[in-house]
Design a protein around this nucleic acid. Structure first.
Length: 552
RNA sequence: GGCCUGUUAGUCAAGGGGUUAAGACGCCGGCCUCUCACGCCGGAAACACGGGUUCGAAUCCCGUACGGGUCACCA
């Protein structure tokens, strides 16, 4: 009997090179500090990753780094049918762009670390060794049902209003004698390996979730598939084996895994392994018509990380936003510590929320505005140029050759305790600053209704007469005031409001004309600062051409 | 449908028996001001519902409703 099981295990799992116990030595416990967390991101290479994936990845990364642990990338490529070429590279690139970097795993084109290989299809020998152990101990068995058989079973179960699945009386091969199974395998019948569940659906077990606290769930009774007919493991089996042998301490994953948790717990038990701390994160949601639903690769291309790159969000801004979703205390911390890098925030898994958050673009934009305001001007120049390379090739030449000019532009209003917050993402930044460049400069607004052409002409002519590029801000403004007064424009707007008939207008009307000539717009940052960035020739040139074109 | 899980303003959220129920985004009003942005001040806006337990419930219990997740040889 015992020898039958051994032979059955060998036949059913031919790929095992070593015994399971050998692997314990091959993958020894990690030497990481006490309390350090080993986390992993375990994506299946099925295409782009979206904001929700970044959210999860960031949680893994923070939890690991925060505790001086390790953050691992394991590729779950057990479904060859869904695999998308290049998906792994794209994922690594995307995450790298947002500064999420792995310590170990399937990175830079190969496995780095002592616990590899890090692609599951290259670990088949390990899974087979593990499956052998289960078969030998009576926790697994080969099942020869065809997909058609299973479909029939399901139909019958539906008819009888019973729970679908392979369990109890429906598990036809569960108690097939070993010698018969051996014969069937030898005869070349296709088979899968199933868990021989010992659970009782009327019994419950409790488990402490790292985010949700105590969870109570019914025991698993389903004889789920461990190894598919092609010998490749299912997710359920592979992740249990891998998380054990990769010595993962915390499994962070979306709450869509909650319902299969009983299966995973039972597998850890069957191996007599301690299980890592399961942490089921909330799913990031999206409005779909009147209801919410979880983000989907297939349905939500606009939530692809590429989308944010195309728009030109600074990676740091996206990260800041995600951090505030990850840990609700983050925002307050950020307000109290405006200068600190986000790495210093004491991230805590147990502070993660358990309700799905709706992605809020307004909030992202606000966070982004604040984040960009803290960055040096040069960083914005770089952001803009790298965005242009990607999304606005026509502008690259101009922008790239104007690095110094860009730095000056972005320096406007950045100093002081209350810097300007004009910038959100590169596409918007480009629109905001394009008037600085003669190639993109155009009249977007017109003269105000209360500003007759002849007044505008007189003001601009006068302005040119006394304009001195070397004037300081105060001196400059003093001249504008004087110019206004000489033309019937009072210095104080309040004065004008009190007595509107006595004046042509106030100093604001004067600067509006200058601003329009310089920027083509009604609104812009401080005229003096804009002028300083533009340089004398451009300032004088713009005013002259405005006079020629619109006031002559 | 079964099972799991959740429900505090439009959104993200703090609070876990006694609070005028924080804060942030957005929205509205005002101040500052050469426009805008910033900043500042103020405002509207929430405990899903029904029963319990309790002197007292957003908070604990039960039920209902609603949302979400999951029920594959996908992950």
């Amino acid at each position: 009997m015992d020898s039958d099981l051994k032979e059955l295990a060998r036949l059913a799992c031919p790929a095992a090179e070593f015994g399971l116990d050998d692997y314990e030595g091959i993958y020894p416990p990690r030497h990481i500090p006490y309390g350090a967390k080993a986390t992993r991101l375990a994506p299946s290479p099925t295409g782009f990753i979206h904001l929700g994936n970044l959210y999860g990845a960031l949680a893994d990364e923070r939890a690991a780094k925060q505790s001086n642990g390790v953050f691992i990338l394991r590729v779950e490529d057990t479904d060859d049918k869904r695999e998308v070429a290049g998906a792994v590279e794209m994922l690594i690139d995307s995450l790298l762009y947002f500064g999420v970097v792995f310590d170990e795993g399937e990175i830079s084109g190969g496995g780095i670390g002592e616990y590899g290989p890090y692609r599951q299809r290259q670990r088949v020998s390990l899974y087979h060794a593990a499956a052998r152990r289960l078969i030998e101990n009576g926790y697994a068995y080969p099942c020869f049902c065809s997909p058609e058989d299973l479909a029939q079973t399901r139909a019958k179960q539906q008819e009888l209003k019973q729970n679908p699945g392979y369990y109890g009386i429906w598990a036809t091969h569960r108690d097939l004698p070993s010698n018969e199974a051996i014969e069937l395998i030898k005869a070349g019948n296709p088979f899968v390996i199933r868990l021989k569940s010992y659970g009782d659906s009327s019994k419950y077990f409790s488990i402490e979730d790292g985010i949700r606290g105590k969870l109570t769930m019914p025991q698993n009774t389903n004889d789920i598939v461990l190894l598919k007919a092609n010998g490749i493991p299912t997710y359920h089996f592979a992740h249990v084996v891998d998380d054990h042998f990769m010595r993962i301490t915390h499994i962070l994953r979306g709450e869509e895994w909650l319902s299969t948790l009983p299966v995973h717990v039972q597998l850890f038990e069957a191996f007599e392994w301690d299980h890592p701390v399961f942490c089921h994160t909330a799913l990031m949601m999206k409005m779909d018509g009147p209801t919410k639903r979880k983000l989907s690769k297939r349905l939500d291309p606009e939530l692809s990380l590429e989308f944010y790159k195309d728009l030109g969000y600074h990676p740091l801004a996206v990260k800041e936003y995600l951090m505030s979703l990850l840990n609700s205390g983050y925002e307050e911390w950020r307000i109290a510590n405006p200068g600190l890098p986000l790495e210093e925030y004491p991230f805590d898994i147990s502070n993660m929320g358990s309700t799905g958050a709706l992605f809020d673009l307004d909030k992202l934009n606000d966070v982004s505005k604040n984040t960009l305001a803290t960055l040096p001007a040069g960083d914005l120049s770089e952001l803009l140029v790298s965005w242009a390379k990607r999304a606005n090739p026509d502008s690259i030449k101009i922008l790239e050759s104007s690095k110094g000019y860009l730095d000056k532009i972005f320096a406007i209003g950045r100093e002081g305790a209350n810097p300007r917050k004009d910038y959100v993402y590169a596409t918007q930044i480009f629109e905001f600053i394009k008037f600085f460049f003669d190639e993109y400069f155009e009249m977007e607004d017109g003269l105000a209704g209360n500003m007759p052409k002849q007044n505008a002409l007189a003001l601009l002519m006068g302005y040119l007469e006394t304009y001195d590029f070397n004037d300081g801000k105060d001196q400059w403004f003093k001249k504008v005031v004087e110019l206004g007064e000489a033309n019937g424009y009072v210095a104080k707007p309040k004065e004008y409001k009190k007595n509107p008939d006595a004046y042509n207008g106030h100093v604001g009307d004067v600067s509006a004309v200058i601003r329009l000539a310089l920027t083509g717009r009604k609104h812009s940052p401080d005229i003096w600062e804009v002028s300083q960035a533009m340089g004398k020739d451009r300032v004088v040139g713009r005013i002259n051409s405005f006079i020629d074109k619109y006031l002559a």
